[in-house]
């Protein structure tokens, strides 16, 4: 594992004591990880993708040579600030609930002229390549840092999507007879040393959405929530959901609405 090491001409990091570790953690092991994360959050390489994502957002691109500045993330065309914290939400033009990345991909298709097939071909990051939607969602997410999650539930489709997400969350199947809830539906579960938050509870559901999109130090790659939830399906030995599908938006709606009212800290850093 190669960490984003700080090499300093003058070691600047020794100066200030760390702000107090996150309040959510109780056990000493998690407290250590939180300390570690806090140190690294100060110089999170995720910011590199933020910069790149902003360029991609503003620069005309795709077959139609258009920028994404007319993309409506739910708060009006081009409004990025606060949009991420208020997604997933219902979009009348597609008559479905979309999460941030799904919406960005939709905009890249409609405004810039990309095809879904080319964007969905290899949608997740590797050590050598970060797909553009991942960079863009990192930029968009960063513009909601410090804001409270407020995924809307006013529209009937938003309520229905939440209900669908809940059903998916509790749906047991596969060779392990697993559901998301098997690990994330009860308190005080643990996998190795890693405590597993209970996403059915508001104060723990924030753990599902906090820190995504996130920079993974293992391999040094930028990943989005689309990737993370897709990986949950793999871990459960379920069939792979389609990229930006309603299944993934529904699951995101379920966890985000459960976390509503809590503060989003912006793109994070992951082990």
């Amino acid at each position: 594992m190669r960490h984003a090491l700080v090499l300093g001409v003058v070691a600047a990091m020794a100066a200030a004591p760390w702000p107090h570790a996150l309040a959510q953690t109780e056990d000493p092991v998690s407290a250590e990880f939180d300390k570690f994360r806090e140190v690294l959050e100060k110089d999170n390489p995720a910011e590199l993708w933020e910069v790149k994502g902003e360029q991609l957002w503003r620069t005309p691109g795709g077959p139609k040579k258009a920028s994404l500045e007319k993309c409506d993330l739910g708060l009006g065309p081009g409004v990025v600030k606060g949009a991420y914290a208020q997604m997933p939400r219902y979009f009348a033009d597609v008559d479905r609930v979309m999460d941030a990345e799904a919406r960005i991909v939709h905009c890249m298709i409609t405004l810039q002229g990309f095809t879904y097939a080319e964007l969905a071909k290899a949608p997740f990051s590797s050590a050598t390549r970060t797909p553009d939607p991942v960079s863009i969602v990192t930029y968009v997410a960063a513009q909601s840092a410090g804001m409270k999650f407020a995924a809307p539930q006013g529209h009937p489709k938003e309520k229905a999507t939440y209900a669908a997400g809940k059903e998916i969350f509790f749906y047991r199947a596969g060779t392990f007879d697993f559901s998301c809830a098997s690990c994330h539906g009860v308190d005080d579960k643990r996998i190795r040393t890693q405590p597993l938050p209970n996403f059915t509870k508001p104060e723990q559901a924030i753990r599902a959405v906090l820190g995504w999109p996130g920079y993974r130090m293992t391999g040094g790659v930028m990943h989005s929530l689309q990737w993370r939830l897709t990986d949950c399906f793999r871990q459960q030995r379920f069939p792979k959901p389609d990229y930006t599908s309603e299944t993934l938006s529904a699951l995101m709606t379920y966890v985000t609405v459960n976390a509503n009212g809590q503060v989003y800290k912006g793109p994070g850093i992951k082990r």
Binding site: R2, H3, A4, L5, V6, L7, G8, V9, V10, A11, A12, M13, D43, P45, L48, A127, Y215, G220
Partner: peptide
Amino acid sequence: SRNPVFAF
């Protein structure tokens, strides 16, 4: 490391 941080 990959994507290094440099502080001075």
